[in-house]
Simulated assay, not measured.
Amino acid sequence: MPSAVLFDRDGTLVEDVPYNGDPGRVRAMPAAREAVALLRGLGVPVAVVSNQSGVGRGLLTRLQVRAVADRVDALLGPLGLWAVCPHRPDEDCGCRKPAPGLVLAACAALGADPRRAVVIGDIGADLAAARAAGAGAVLVPTGATRSEEVGAARHTAPDLLAAVRLALALARDGASGPAPGGGGW
């Protein structure tokens, strides 16, 4: 089993609504509830790793981000840990994806080995953060995913449930940990 599965929020677990601070606008992605339930049933720790630059830009408050997280938890069941980067892209912090900070912080809080963790996201920054942390990654492309991001991904899945099943299969087959040449599988 993976030591943990870390999900991106917008475009992965829920529909991407830019700078959303309104819980009423939260809509789960297809198969998200089943994907999270599958992991819970197997005892795999789950968490969310999410860039929320709207806080740093003054477009959202931390309370609004928390209210959206609470709505996601209500729709999908408790996701446990929420690791959120509130910084603007120009702040050059170590937590904003594609930096590894959110992934490493989530793994540390969960007591999970990042080399056996998996990040599931919808854009290249999600996968780059996973690689930088030494974790595995699965891309679930959406309309916002650029073709070069799909081409660069080692593993893709058509939806969230397929991504979780792929992550479980790869972990079972021993594909976790850094790949030759660096980064996760």
Rank of each mutant, 00 (worst) to 15 (best):
A133R: 12
A167T: 11
L6A: 08
A152F: 08
L168Y: 02
G184E: 09
R165N: 03
R115T: 15
R154F: 03
D70M: 10
L127W: 09
I123Y: 00
V65L: 07
T12Y: 00
G111W: 07
L81M: 10
D113H: 13
P141K: 03
R146W: 04
L166C: 02
V65H: 04
G174A: 11
R9P: 13
A32I: 11
A106Y: 06
G182Y: 09
L102D: 05
D70V: 06
A135G: 11
V48W: 10
L104G: 10
P178C: 12
L110D: 12
L59A: 13
V140Y: 01
V14H: 05
S3P: 08
I120N: 09
P100R: 09
V68D: 01
R27L: 12
A83V: 15
G80W: 02
C107I: 11
V44C: 11
D122A: 13
D8N: 09
G43N: 12
A135V: 02
Q64G: 14
S176F: 15
R165Y: 06
D10A: 05
A47E: 02
R62S: 07
L166N: 06
G111M: 07
L76V: 06
Y19S: 08
G183A: 11
A4M: 07
G177S: 14
G101S: 04
L161E: 11
V138L: 08
A128M: 08
R33V: 04
R66C: 01
R9C: 08
L110C: 09
R131I: 01
G134H: 14
C107P: 07
A128K: 07
A152S: 15
R172I: 01
D126V: 07
D22G: 03
E15K: 05
L59M: 12
L42E: 09
L79K: 08
E149H: 13
R71S: 00
H155G: 02
L75S: 11
A157I: 05
G181M: 03
L38S: 05
D159A: 03
L39R: 00
A162F: 03
P89D: 11
E148P: 10
R57Y: 10
I123G: 09
P23Y: 02
S147L: 14
L38I: 01
G177Y: 10
T156P: 06
R172T: 14
C107R: 00
A99S: 03
A169S: 09
